[in-house]
């Protein structure tokens, strides 16, 4: 590694460490997107893990590392690095995803649309379960890593995200369309979620254990088949209560047990995650590269 490259890496790391943390405030959802965008210049880090055990398969942990950056007020870009570990089969890196979300209306309305576009380059062993489409089910989750890892999945995914805030409630609906760039039909899925904080007004003091820091909700998500076989027959669906707790420092912890509601769904999925956000990371990084203070 050259000295210049090392200097840039150290500068970026310093910018990250020196920046104040701020509230991620994204709500308790794991699967459902709301219309909330990342604040311009902020960088959010998150780790999300899903644990499950398909019938006849081994227990697995699917994990994603997520880097979300607010490019502008209406454009948020996000990089995911996926990996998984399966009992008795080892751990592996399964690929990456790059997503972009574009807010379509500048002002807040009753229903606020956001367009989501993503490119995925993952393999068949990926078990992050960030969305359920087509007839995805526990059969695929039970495939041995030694075989599944050789299946390449280069896919484009689009979502129409609709979000509303009504009297403290967050309501979001996502419609998903996915297409392998080489073959396979268009695949469809959905996710809907409702959440609200336990308290609407903030307390005057800085607190960890106060109701305003806790959000509760429920998500419902599943597959809708393909353009050739559209519908819910033979598809997987889950219902998942979810809780998010944001500490006074800004770190958010989330947990969500999910329950499969059809025979093709995995019976039980447990999701948990942690996220934190560096305020104005972009500005600090630019200043560091220009020789200024972070």
């Amino acid at each position: 590694m050259t000295t210049a490259r090392l200097k840039y890496l150290l500068a970026a790391a310093a910018a990250l460490v020196l920046q104040p943390l701020c509230w991620a405030g994204e709500g308790p959802f794991f699967i459902t997107y709301t219309h909330q965008m990342e604040e311009p210049g902020n960088l959010e880090f998150a780790f999300k893990t899903v644990m499950g055990k398909p019938d006849g398969g081994n227990r697995f942990f699917g994990t994603v590392a997520e880097f979300e950056y607010g490019v502008t007020g209406w454009w948020t870009s996000e990089l995911y690095l996926d990996g998984q570990a399966t009992r008795r089969e080892g751990a592996l890196f399964t690929g990456y995803r790059w997503e972009n979300r574009f807010r379509l209306l500048s002002h807040e309305h009753w229903i606020n649309p956001v367009l989501y576009l993503e490119f995925e380059n993952i393999n068949g062993a990926d078990k992050s379960l960030l969305e359920i489409v087509n007839h995805d089910g526990q059969e695929a989750l039970g495939s041995p890593n030694a075989e599944a890892r050789f299946e390449k999945k280069r896919e484009m995914e689009a979502k129409l995200i609709l979000g509303s805030y009504v009297k403290g409630w967050t309501i979001a609906e996502n419609f998903i369309a996915e297409k392998n760039v080489r073959h396979a039909p268009f695949e469809f899925g959905y996710a809907v979620g409702v959440s609200r904080p336990l308290a609407m007004a903030a307390r005057p003091d800085r607190c960890n254990f106060c109701a305003e820091n806790v959000q509760v909700g429920v998500e419902l998500y599943g597959g809708l088949g393909t353009h050739e076989q559209f519908g819910v027959g033979g598809t997987s669906h889950y219902i998942a209560p979810t809780v998010a707790w944001t500490l006074a420092s800004g770190t958010t912890l989330r947990i969500s047990p999910g329950f499969g509601t059809t025979g093709t769904s995995a019976g039980y999925l447990l999701r948990f995650g942690v996220s934190y956000e560096a305020a104005q990371f972009g500005r600090a990084a630019r200043n560091l590269f220009r020789g200024g203070r972070p």
């Binding site: 405030g25 709500g27 709301t34 909330q36 965008m37 604040e39 311009p40 607010g70 502008t72 007020g73 209406w74 807010r103 500048s106 807040e108 805030y165 009297k167 403290g168 967050t170 904080p197 609407m200 007004a201 903030a202 305003e212």
Partner: peptide, 16 residues
């Protein structure tokens, strides 16, 4: 004002 970089804070409850 999304085009000027001011994000919406509609995600905060009205009371906040």
């Amino acid at each position: 004002s999304l085009h000027r970089g001011m994000p919406s804070f509609a995600h905060l409850p009205e009371a906040q």
